[in-house]
Each structure stands twice: as structure tokens, then as C-alpha cells.
């Protein structure tokens, strides 16, 4: 059983969580059509350490996990806006 640690509810089986995709920042509103299309569709598909949205379903908590998509090892999890804290 794989485990993931919700920053609010603690360590839980992965089945309690929903993957929300990579944390991404939208381009500015005045970007070009091509930039916008790239933002809408393209993803950083290559493996590496990524920040991703995860959702703890029983409590409705969205948080961010820093995870290596090659090894599936989670470095840390934190609430949005609390990157600096442990």
C-alpha cells in the first residue's frame, strides 16, 4: 500500500487521494494565442521532480506534493501558500 501525507490530516493510504495534475502558472492575460494554446494543452511530460496538486477526498483538502515522477518518491507536501514552512 502506497502512502501519502496530507499536510492537515496526516499519513494516509494513497486510495484516499485524488491526483490533480501538475501545479502550473497561467501565462499573463495578454499572451499570444500560441502561448495560450501551449498552456492549455502542453505538459512537462518528461520525468523529474514536480510540484503537483493532490486532493484528500475525505476532508476535501487540496495541497501540493513535491514528487519525483520517475521513482514515485514524495519529497514533501504542503498547503498552497505555505511553501516555506515544514
Amino acid at each position: 500500500m502506497k502512502l501519502l501525507t496530507c499536510p492537515v490530516n496526516g499519513t494516509r493510504p494513497l486510495s484516499e487521494f485524488v491526483f490533480g495534475g501538475e501545479y502550473r502558472v497561467a501565462p499573463p492575460a495578454d499572451c499570444t494565442d500560441a502561448e495560450w494554446a501551449a498552456y492549455v494543452h502542453n505538459r512537462s511530460g518528461a520525468p523529474g521532480i514536480k510540484n503537483e496538486w493532490w486532493y484528500h477526498a475525505p476532508s476535501g483538502t487540496w495541497f501540493i506534493a513535491e514528487r519525483n515522477t520517475l521513482t514515485d518518491k514524495v519529497m514533501r507536501t504542503y498547503l498552497k501558500g505555505q511553501e516555506g514552512s515544514k
Binding site: N9, R12, A57, P58, S59
Partner: peptide, 12 residues
């Protein structure tokens, strides 16, 4: 208070 899942169902 624990928020978890019982038999796949979210519970408090």
C-alpha cells in the same frame, strides 16, 4: 477528529 475512508466511502 479523523477524516478517512471506510470501505471506499469518506467518513468523519
Amino acid at each position: 477528529v479523523i477524516m478517512t475512508q471506510f470501505a471506499g466511502v469518506s467518513v468523519v
